[in-house]
Design a protein around this nucleic acid. Structure first.
Lengths: 332, 332
DNA sequence: TTGTAGGCGTTATCAT
DNA sequence: ATGATAACGCCTACAA
């Protein structure tokens, strides 16, 4: 019953153990004839190399670790999908872990994953730079949605995110725009506020009102709705789509007619954005690409195709998807 | 720079290598004093056992494989979350793989994952019973959303799913109910149709119309909408929430007033169900529990706490979440 | 081009 | 209770 090992293949093919090893993992080092014989034998016996043994011998595992705050959040599940696909294509397996938005858990996961994978991808970390850097010093790592000097990272252009949204609203004629932000601990939110500042500078004819920090979910939107309505703004940009949907939900409940009384722009372009009504205009973030890009970079480093020191911060572009939640402001 | 091994700990603690191994993985076999000394040394040196080596020696990997059709589908991502949480709590790591709804890819994933994990969880498989059984003969396996004789499985009570939905509609006064089905290859859809038959038998005062098979997404619902309207049914049950939302979207576009002109019941109770309008009445499926239950069973088997032959098919209950997409039928 | 032999870090089987 | 020592299955100099 015990599984077939390389030794069995060797006997079956009438060659030595090492020849089998070579024929299978470095075919060019073995004579055409022998190689075929070995490969045939391997196939016949249904040989499959033992990953643990290989890993022990080579020091590599052919696996990547992926840590996300919440697997069941559509933003992250897209990222996971991208990571998994790219990794598999590159011959790597992915070990996923869910920190449940808990910084302590996140660190725990990082610690234990660090030494059983060849590379670690950390998505939207909730931990401090230092804690992350410490782990990064012990294992190849790529950051998603965050940058830390000296660590590989892939992010989106958060300035562009808000710029795009604001420019769109301004072009429609809006002059008073509100921003419903995410958690104050959010790296993305900080970047977006920064972008907002730039916007305000650049477009001197508009005013941007910061409505504060809210939970990045439906509930956060609900909480921000009345505030938004009272702010006098004719349009609002929210931290993400869920917030936008919550905000719209509450406003519709209050009898507001959208987008007539308020234009709303979300961020993420989740697959539900087109499904609500009015369908949500949103800044699309290429989530799967975020994941695959991170894997790409990581694999490049692992394969020595990319210098390990030349710090690389890749920034992916975003684009606006215009739907019906945005329109010209109502006449005064 | 090379990592600290058990041997280092041994020297540091002044004991033999084997004592270190025992002190750490079978503490009760070693004297109190020595144990403390070893553990102290281990902590001091920051020792972490090498998983590959351990795996090679024990034949176990402490990891589970999980294969799903689409990581980015909210149904599956919930399952993944449940699996990951339970596995981690049980000391197991999870390797996820996405088959992209492709049966061939699914088999490939199963094959290569089979020999590098202690157990495999296969969610909503798109492959044949035979192909699955073959893999199951070589590795511990648990099925999700499907049963195959002889293989461990966790499913929901699909009969109850439709019964609950239909009973609710009937109680509201509906007598003509339509069913918008999923793909003909769907195991769940087959079970639900079966349940529908039982309903029709049991409630002789209602008629259930089968509208056919549709894609299990928004588009499928759009496609089924006009058909549903034309069927004369006053209420409809759809294969899942996405279909329900698509159907409602199309109908609203046509000017229908919901739920006045048509009551709609979805299945899954995705987190978006409450967010659309009218909010969607849906049969809640305990998705994370599906995942954690599967892990539980699998770990029980792996630990020998559960007989490997006594085939177990666990069925989880569902419940109805009533929202505003269902109401009494309009007067004629 | 192929074979020999040593080692990767643990666990597990023997003795002691 | 503890210490040698042989696996575990593969890779990789090194030798032939």
């Amino acid at each position: 019953m015990s599984v077939v090992t390389a030794r069995h293949v060797a006997e079956h093919a009438g060659v030595s153990l090492s020849t089998v090893s070579r024929a299978l993992s470095a075919p060019e080092l073995v004579a055409e004839r022998t190689r075929r014989r070995v490969q045939a034998a391997a196939r016949e016996l249904g040989y499959e190399p033992n990953v643990a043994a290989r890993s022990l011998a080579t020091g590599r595992t052919s696996s990547l670790g992926l840590v996300v705050p919440d697997l069941d959040n559509p933003f992250f599940s897209s990222v996971v999908k991208g990571v998994q696909a790219k990794a598999w294509a590159g011959g790597y397996t992915v070990v996923v872990a869910d920190s449940n938005e808990d910084p302590a858990m996140e660190r725990e996961l990082l610690q234990s994953l660090a030494k059983q994978v060849d590379g670690l991808i950390l998505c939207s970390p909730r931990t401090s730079d230092d804690a992350i850097a410490e782990v990064a010093s012990r294992v190849r790592m790529a950051l998603l949605n965050r940058t830390i000097p000296g660590i590989l990272s892939v992010t989106i252009d958060n300035t562009q995110v808000v710029m795009t949204a604001v420019a769109h609203l301004r072009a429609l004629g809006h002059r008073s725009i509100a921003y419903v932000g995410g958690p104050s601990t959010s790296w993305s939110d900080a970047r977006r506020r920064e972008g907002l500042r730039l916007c305000a500078e650049r477009f001197s004819d508009i005013t941007v009102t910061d409505l504060g920090h809210f939970r990045p979910h439906y509930s956060g939107g609900v909480a921000a709705a009345d505030l938004t309505a009272a702010s006098g703004a004719t349009a609002v940009v929210t931290f993400n789509d869920l917030v936008a949907i919550g905000l719209m939900g509450r406003l519709k409940e209050r009898g507001f007619v959208l987008p007539r009384q308020l234009s709303v722009v979300g961020i993420d372009d989740l697959s539900i954005a087109p499904l609500i009504s009015p369908s949500l205009t949103s800044v699309r973030i290429p989530r799967p690409q975020l994941g695959s890009s991170a894997v790409q970079s990581l694999l490049d480093v692992l394969a020595g195709r990319r210098p390990t020191d030349g710090v690389s911060h890749e920034t992916l572009p975003v684009d606006l998807v215009i739907r019906q939640s945005t329109a010209e402001p109502a006449e005064k």
